[in-house]
Design a protein around this nucleic acid. Structure first.
Length: 463
DNA sequence: GCATGATCATGC
DNA sequence: GCATGATCATGC
């Protein structure tokens, strides 16, 4: 079949694709007269179908699911992906970009450069459409950005490291312990029609969830705003930690930099980096870490791309931790009607990598830098959180006892003494800052916390 | 001194 | 003004 573009030329494919900008998927169907006379959506409006729609009704080739890129002669992989406008008016990727399924049995023999993943990811034609909640017919979504994309060299360094981390885990017979939060930009995301599906893995008899290589939504947000949209002025630029040259390991680079200042007091560090130390800034620990890492902004490019959240931890002189770790407040009504694996806290814990900056009080009560650690929750601890979450949901749906004693509210939400990993406690501006329960009562906003004792167990190696 | 409820500080 | 990370305050 004759096509309106040269399928052997990436540039030609991109030029033709650019004509899609400003059009909806419905427009594409209506404009297509090449052997498809009806306006039936052919099931394309279902999930995943919008990419197939473009393949069949715009580029006019049959979609394949084989290992080759969609345009094999040009080496171009077509990726149709949604973005949305968040509450701050920023353009963000709506979801991760799935590249290709991980074949556990064979991937352990594939070097990155010859991998199925890289075959598809080395040159992608990204087609971003605007997802809008209020538009119910997906065919009415509008295509706004079209561009060929290859991860730039500095990202590729980290992506290769991510790849090795994932493949090594599989090599070690730990495919069942893979987590999306293990890595920075490239991740092993779960992918199956139902959460009970399991696959065989090499080097272990334990079946593992099917997973796919994907680029994290935090990374795709960065790609959209910095590589795809020309000079997007709304985006505030932040400094990168690694600025030039090849590094062996990002983690190690960061650990080594922080380690140079181990034992220094907060005051000394503030002097060293010209941080005004008179105000008790609660993000002082994070600011110090950024300055040590050579970053002037209060955020780092690599952390933004990887969606890494910074947390500061204070260890007492006797090696205990006083404070538990808080997270965003929960919505009682949301939890009441959702399942664990679709909950915010589950997604946070399974997708987020944390950067712990750890300080410790010396015998004179002076707070000194102890070290840092990239951390994400091990899957085995997740089941503990699940039981706390389930009990919380159950109480929200009936059985929650609320009392007010001397102005202080109490409840029977799961306490730190009831579980080794997590508990529920207030997280609000004050006691009047409330959320509505399904039964109509109000109660101070709460969140899930990670127990101080649990946090301590996770940073034992730093003590 | 710990457990739990309450609130502060920052950034947008 | 609100969400979020961090920390304080109090009673046992």
């Amino acid at each position: 079949m004759e096509t309106a573009y040269d399928k052997t030329s990436a540039k030609s494919i991109e030029e033709y694709a650019r004509l899609l900008i400003g059009k909806t998927f419905q427009d594409v169907i209506e404009a297509d007269s090449d052997g498809f006379s009806n306006l039936d959506d052919g099931g394309f409006s279902k999930k995943g179908g919008l990419g197939n729609l473009l393949e069949e009704r715009y580029f006019h080739y049959g979609s394949n699911s084989d290992a080759r890129p969609d345009f094999p002669e040009a080496g171009v992989e077509l990726k149709t992906t949604p973005y949305k406008i968040n509450s701050k008016g920023e353009k963000v990727a709506k979801e991760r970009l799935v590249i290709t399924m991980i074949d556990y049995m064979n991937v352990i023999n594939e070097a990155f450069d010859e991998s199925h993943l890289w075959l598809k990811a080395r040159l992608m034609l990204l087609i971003y459409y605007l997802y809008q909640k209020e538009i119910t017919n997906r065919l009415n979504y509008r295509i706004d950005y079209v561009s060929l994309f290859t991860p730039p060299e500095e990202d590729l360094e980290i992506i290769k490291e991510d790849y090795e981390k994932i493949v090594n885990k599989i090599r070690n017979g730990l495919a069942h312990e893979l987590s999306e939060a293990d890595t920075m930009y490239l991740a092993a995301c779960t992918k199956s029609s139902d959460s009970s599906v399991r696959r065989q893995q090499p080097n272990s008899d334990i079946p593992a969830k099917p997973r796919a290589f994907s680029l994290k939504s935090s990374y795709m947000t960065y790609v959209l705003n910095n590589y795809i949209i020309p000079s997007s002025s709304k985006v505030s630029k932040v400094d990168a930690i690694v600025n030039n040259g090849h590094i062996v390991s990002f983690d190690k680079y960061v650990y080594d930099k922080i380690a140079e200042y181990r034992g220094r007091s907060i005051e000394e560090l503030c002097n060293e980096f010209n941080i005004p130390s008179d105000t008790p800034a609660k993000n002082l620990g994070a600011i110090i870490a950024y300055r040590i890492l050579g970053v002037k902004s209060n955020s780092a490019e690599e952390f933004v791309k990887a969606g890494i959240k910074v947390k500061t931890i204070r260890v007492n002189a006797n090696n205990t931790i006083t404070e538990s770790m808080s997270f965003p407040a929960m919505s009682f009504n949301k939890i009441a009607s959702e399942e664990w694996e679709e909950s915010d806290f589950y997604q946070l814990l399974t997708e987020t990598k944390f950067f712990f900056v750890v300080f410790k009080y010396d015998e004179n009560n002076t707070l000194r830098l102890l070290g840092c650690k990239f951390w994400n929750m091990p899957g085995s601890d997740l089941s503990e959180v699940e039981s706390v979450w389930n009990k919380t949901k159950q109480l929200i749906n009936g059985g929650l006892v609320i009392e007010r004693i001397n102005g202080k509210y109490t409840s029977n939400f799961p306490k730190a003494s009831e579980n080794s990993v997590s508990h529920v406690r207030p997280h609000a501006r004050n006691a009047e800052d409330v959320d509505i329960l399904p039964d109509g009562r109000v109660f101070p906003k709460q969140c899930f916390w990670l127990n101080n004792s649990y946090i301590l167990s996770q940073i034992q190696d730093l003590l």
